[in-house]
Structure formats: C-alpha cells, structure tokens
Amino acid sequence: MTTLDTGTKAPAKKRALSFEWLGVAPFIVFAIMFLILPTLYLVGAAFVDEKGGFTLANFAGLGTPQIVAAYWISIRISGASAILGALIGLAIALALIRGKLPLGLRAAVMTFSGVASNFAGVPLAFAFISTLGRLGLATVILKFVFGIDIYKAGFNLLSFWGLTITYLYFQIPLMILIIAPAIDGLKKEWSEAASTLGATPWQFWRYVGLPILWPSFLGTLSLLFANAFGAIATAYALTGSSLNIVPILLYAQIRGDALQNPGLGAALAVGMILITGFANVVYLVISARAERWLK
C-alpha cells in the first residue's frame, strides 16, 4: 500500500481529508457553540462573585434551607418516579414479551409508549388536572361511586405524590421502550436450559433472568432519574411556582433573578448538571457492562 503512495497521489488525499473535516465541522462548531460553551460559561460563572472575582461562596450558598429543600424534593420526586416507573415498566414489558400475550398487543403498546414518553410537558399536566384534580373525573368517580374522597384523605395533585404519579405517565413508557430490547435479548434457550437442569420458572428468574436484566434495569433507572430531574414544564403547568423543586427555582431565577445573585443561579445549575451527569455516567457504565454480557 505505502509504496503505491507516490507524490502525485498526495494532493488528492489531502483534499479528501479537508473535505471530511468540512463535513464534520458544522456539527463540531454547533456542539461547541450550543452545548459546550453555554455549559462551561455557567460553570465558570458559578465561581465568580458579583464583583468579578473568584469565589466559592456561590456553592456555599447552595446550603441555604430553601435550596437544600428544593434539591431534596427534586431528588425525591425524581427518585420515586424513576424507581416506580422502572419497576412498573419492567413488569409491563415482561408481561407483554414473556407472558404469552397476543403479538398485536405488543406492537400497540410499543407505539403507545413512543407517544406517551413524548407526551410530557404542559398538556400532560392538563390531562392529570382533568383526571386527579379536585374536579377530575377519577376524583369525582372515586368520591361519588366508591365513597372515597382522596382529597380528604390527604391527596393533592400539587404535591410530591401528585407530581410523581403524573411523571409516571412518561417514565413508565420510557422504561418499556428501553428495557424491551433487553428482555428480547433473553434467549429462550436460557430458560429451557435452566428447566432441564431442574429449575422452576421462579428459580430461573431468580438466578438467571433478573440478574441478566439487572444492569439494563439499573442503567435505565438512572436515565429515568435524570429525565425527571431536569423536567420542568409539567411541574410548572401543574403547580405554577408553588412547588419548590430545583428546575422551577432555576426558572424563577432566570426570569427575574429570584435569588438576587446570578452567581448563585449558576451554582444551582451546576448542581443540577452534576446530579444528572452522575446519573447518566452510571447509565453509560452499566449499559456497557450489559452489552458485554449479551454479546
């Protein structure tokens, strides 16, 4: 090969190379301008005080009770909706794929999951207000048909559980979409091999099936967590600014400098990036491990 690379060929090669860069350049410039720089700018701003000097005070400021409470409720809602969404999504996906349900049903659920996982934001909030709001259909039916007044029992759509139930509407479908290929990856021969070796179906799941799914499950769990943690539109439309979660706090800060400190706002954002970034690193590490298994 190398001996054929004579001088006459060299310019052609160079031109081809620059052409490749020309093709990739827009993507890279775009990523730098709209992903890297804005993020780095915020990270930088988090270390700058109001006079332009270096400071760690902004991160210390994250320790104020209001902000700690916001992080805490955000983590709880994201965690609850991720764990419940992952468990329920796994159960539904298992029922669909391994439960011998009609084949057409699976296609329908997959399509619906595609829709529902993208049906987040303001309209989703409207749907749940119509369902579980004070005048929502489910609330009214439970009250007048079954005699259960969920609001008297302490339920509130604009609360931790209300938001969690609402988030599940896009968390469960997302879990189904991501975990279904992993369940498909469970070979029929594995359960057959286990059964010829004397294992009951439960023993197969206990020792083989669920352990194989475990990395995918954990990985998707962290993805769901990050997904809920950054979401704001649903919560904002549902509760206005009454619920003190981090994205809503940040929204208020961007709108009108609610914290009266731009540096603190940047630190708030960096905190969010750290948390969602950590969840996603967990996802990447675990899913790489799962892929190695399923080769």
Partner: peptide
C-alpha cells in the same frame, strides 16, 4: 467523541442550556 456530544442534551437539562444561552 461525537456520540458523547450527542448524548449531552440528555445529560444537561434544557433549562440549563437556555440559561447558558441567555447569559452567553
């Protein structure tokens, strides 16, 4: 690297990106 870049919008919430845009 390209794959990592395309995953970033899943890691960095939209509200953070827009915050960065507004300030930058």
């Amino acid at each position: 690297y390209v794959e990592f870049l395309t995953l970033l919008p899943l890691i960095i919430p939209a509200i953070i990106l827009v915050y960065g845009y507004i300030r930058l």
